[in-house]
Simulated assay, not measured.
Amino acid sequence: MAKRIAVLVSGGGTNLQALIDAQARGEIVNGEIAAVIASNPDAYALERAKKAGIPTYVVARKSYPSSQAMTVALVEQLQALHIDLVVLAGFMVILTSEMVQAFPNAILNVHPALIPSFAGPGCYGLHVHEKALEYGVKLSGATVHFVSEECDGGPIVSQKAVEVLPDDTPEILQRRIMENCEWKLLPQAVSLFCQGRLKVEGRTVRILD
């Protein structure tokens, strides 16, 4: 049985598109994107999903009094859809512990930096790349990790680096990391999960042959 994947989105959905394209090329082995769920009813990612024929749902943050109430509703939606793997792809809501408890080691997130650098609360979107440039790092990149109750603190599945160039702006660096790192790492990690090839041992993730 193919693993059922739900992708959680809030905005444009470029990482979702990378997953859709990888699925179309047959690169997500033993998995299928069964649902795209948005925290924002106007997210363009929903259009990408509809074009690909993927069922869409909205669990809007503003419809709930707290992040916890929204998280509980989201868990109920995911369980009703019999989801095996949850993928956070530019999902801008901090989920509470109910999500991790419902899907232990079954939530993947892609972060646009080499964790533990430029990670944690407040490090999202362009802020990550602004911090990297301010610090003067020579390499940055992306990290795919399992989601734990600590923000950006779960076990690391994969990382990929790119050079930071002298004339980079946050926007230019963001684009290079998306194209060269995020759009490659995330589909690979999803495929490995769906094949049962990711084994979590404490903080370490082993990739099985």
Rank of each mutant, 00 (worst) to 15 (best):
A18D: 02
G13I: 01
Q17V: 07
R61V: 07
A38S: 15
A6C: 13
H129T: 00
V110Q: 01
V144K: 06
A119M: 13
S158M: 14
Q23F: 04
L133Y: 10
A24M: 11
I107F: 13
Q77V: 12
L192S: 03
N40E: 11
R61E: 05
M92S: 13
V7D: 08
M70T: 01
P116Y: 14
G154D: 10
P155I: 07
C194E: 00
I33L: 11
A22T: 01
I20C: 07
K160E: 15
I115T: 14
Q79C: 06
K184A: 10
A52M: 04
T169H: 03
P166I: 11
C123E: 14
I83K: 04
R175N: 15
I5C: 12
S158C: 05
L114K: 14
T204W: 05
G141T: 06
C123P: 00
R206T: 13
Q68R: 14
I54H: 10
Q68V: 04
V205Y: 13
D167R: 10
V100L: 06
L88C: 11
P65Q: 08
Q188M: 13
A113Q: 05
M1E: 12
V59Q: 02
I156H: 09
T143K: 01
Q68D: 15
S117C: 07
A24W: 09
P121A: 15
I115Y: 01
E134A: 15
D168M: 02
M92T: 08
S148W: 03
L173T: 09
V75W: 01
L165P: 07
C151P: 06
A22L: 12
V137L: 07
S63V: 02
A80M: 05
R25W: 00
A132L: 10
E47N: 14
V144C: 09
D209F: 04
S191R: 00
G136N: 00
K62P: 05
A189D: 01
P112K: 02
L108M: 08
C194L: 12
L139G: 02
G141F: 06
M99A: 09
P170W: 01
C194D: 01
D84T: 09
V162T: 04
I107Q: 03
L186W: 08
E47S: 14
L139S: 07
L186Q: 11
Y135L: 13
K131V: 05
Y124M: 04
A161C: 12
E27W: 00
S140P: 06
N109V: 01
N180T: 06
T169K: 12
G141C: 02
G11S: 10
F103A: 09
E171Y: 01
A34G: 11
A52Q: 05
G11F: 03
D209W: 07
A45W: 08
G90C: 08
G31T: 04
E163A: 14
V93I: 15
A119I: 07
E182I: 00
V87L: 08
V137I: 13
Q17A: 07
C181Q: 08
Q174T: 14
L108H: 01
M1D: 11
K51S: 12
I172A: 15
L74I: 05
